[in-house]
Design a binder for these strands. Sequence first.
DNA 1: ACCTCTGCTGATAACTAATATCGTTTAGTT
DNA 2: AACTAAACGATATTAGTTATCAGCAGAGGT
Lengths: 149, 149
Amino acid sequence: MRNKVENKADQIYELLKQNDFKVTPQRKVILNLFFDKIGEHLSAEEVYNLLQENHPEIGLATVYRTLELYAELDVLQKMSFDDSKNRYELNNNDIHHHHHLICTGCGKVSEFSDDLLEALEEQITTKTKFKIMDHKVKFYGKCESCYNK
Amino acid sequence: MRNKVENKADQIYELLKQNDFKVTPQRKVILNLFFDKIGEHLSAEEVYNLLQENHPEIGLATVYRTLELYAELDVLQKMSFDDSKNRYELNNNDIHHHHHLICTGCGKVSEFSDDLLEALEEQITTKTKFKIMDHKVKFYGKCESCYNK
DNA sequence: ACCTCTGCTGATAACTAATATCGTTTAGTT
DNA sequence: AACTAAACGATATTAGTTATCAGCAGAGGT
Ligand SMILES: [Mn+2]
Ligand SMILES: [Mn+2]
Ligand SMILES: [Zn+2]
Ligand SMILES: [Zn+2]
């Protein structure tokens, strides 16, 4: 009996094959890193630095290429919190993406799971000809500790 | 009797003064450019190029500085449509920002005025300690013409 | 009207995230 | 085992932005 992460990883290896991409050691290692870092929003350089410990042979260009590939396949969600670099996290494609709450005081990013955009998306569908396939929602404000000072 | 744009511009000049910033010719020219380009989402370089015709003396660094300043003062809204450059448009601070609909086929950006995030913001306020002050919402999908082919 | 002083400006160097290039290696196939 | 297109690591290059700095200018004081 396989555990959940292995099963999920295998599904993604299958997805790679289905799209005529090779399942390379580098792609496996990087994917597994994201399984280990659920909840974090990692930049390419952060991924590269984390890899230094156990996989210093993996090059930075490969990290960039792999993150981009996984984002394309919707395995990773690509995002930016206005610090001029892209960040990635595992895309729990159980229903919709969560929303991000960004503290303008300390920069901390927290999350909110409920989607609750149905009403808005329905309005857009009714009033425009645009076919919505995805969305990104960011809220800016103050986290509890920044608000109380 | 002054017209609407002049009045609005004067208000923003006042805002600059209130915050101890000088009202310079460059800042006036760049602000007025945005009054002329309502509905567009201009990058720094696009602003710089538009200025070449009538104000080639204004340097690119000044454009960057001015856009950043106005964004700080909430005169301009700063945004990015994932083309790795920041874009700006006049912030109609009548109520909330509009939302952006980004076509993943042709890259065209359209807009949707109604805010309709009350329900979602209320949920976040109820369930978390986060104090929401602003939001950015982007929808990805297909515009009418990209959808029909 | 002139001085002063500080903020602002333009030119350009420096920085940084990301991408392109290229010779070598390797996964998947025969 | 051999083959080949895809992927790789190292590194050069690009592109958007920011930092630096000497000169300018405009508001306030005299
Ligand atoms: Mn997240
Ligand atoms: Mn807009
Ligand atoms: Zn905070
Ligand atoms: Zn389109």
